[in-house]
Design a protein around this nucleic acid. Structure first.
Lengths: 152, 152
DNA sequence: CCCAATCAGTTGCGGATTGAAACCAGCATG
DNA sequence: CATGCTGGTTTCAATCCGCAACTGATTGGG
């Protein structure tokens, strides 16, 4: 009885009006964002993703397929041969701030002081600074100083 | 295998050295971040979370318990009575940039042009600008201009 | 050409997780 | 006492996940 209204690549959202919910409907599972993370870090092939994440192969198959179907990844034939490889699309690369903020939360709250972890650095090896939300005039924003509004 | 470092509510990480993976181990499921989102938007009570998310009640019970155990939420008695309520901790509020970047990705990529959605505004009603990663000297950073490095 | 290894999956199978709905207990009101 | 609200718990079916075995298409070497 579902009645598809228009063209629907991925039907029935958890909360159709909320961008947060829609994004989580696409990548809000245990593995998708780790696959994206590794793609950003240079992983291209099935076995490379498998090796880095440790994910079960059938699940990886499923995730690569879904991420490709939803436009985060594309499959193209590798430049150096005839094997195919997975590369991030524009939409996939736009998840960079999401991965970065997850990373920064983890670095701050999920490690004991002095515990070994990885961090993100720029081309000069300088650590990437914390990403802080600000208003258009530069004042910092948080949960108390913002609110959700409907738009059409 | 007894590995009691200090207080260990949630042992064996998916990828112990990666802050992204650790964060996702804590909130990387279908519902946790939506609960956090609603907490940021003012939800305090069990039924309020249930009403906003539409989540099954047993799962909500589990998520509220886990989010509390992991330090994202605290339970305190409401100031205006004797009912208890869930409020975000410091660590919970620090997920604000994560929710915001998820929201911004969704606004950009998960909606057809002109489709109705919610957005985030500051106290003056001005839309919150895009959060863009930059290096310490202000140059924009992306997947091509950063790399992961181990730190101890 | 033949044998082996590697890559990219697919299939089958138990066990854990999730979800919908029903049930339950405490408290407040009428 | 009956009703309603809050904050759950229980039950049970469906789904998801990981493991291991298998396929099938390529490289790679002798």
């Amino acid at each position: 009885m579902p009645r598809s209204t228009e063209r629907a690549p991925d039907p029935d959202w958890t909360d159709a009006a909320c961008p947060v919910a829609r994004t989580l409907d696409l990548v809000g599972d245990r593995w998708s964002l780790l696959v994206i993370r590794d793609a950003m870090d240079g992983a291209r092939s099935f076995t490379e993703f498998q090796r880095r994440t440790g994910i079960a192969r059938n699940i990886l198959t499923d995730r690569l397929r879904k991420l490709t179907a939803h436009g985060f990844l594309t499959q193209r034939t590798a430049p150096s041969g005839r094997r195919r490889e997975y590369v991030l699309t524009e939409a996939g690369r736009d998840l960079f701030p999401v991965i970065l903020t997850l990373r920064q939360w983890g670095e701050r709250h999920a490690f004991a002081p002095g515990e070994a972890h990885s961090t993100l650095v720029d081309e000069h090896g300088t650590p990437v600074p914390e990403l802080t939300p600000t208003s258009a005039d530069g004042t910092p924003l948080g949960t108390g100083t913002t609110q959700v509004r409907k738009v059409h």
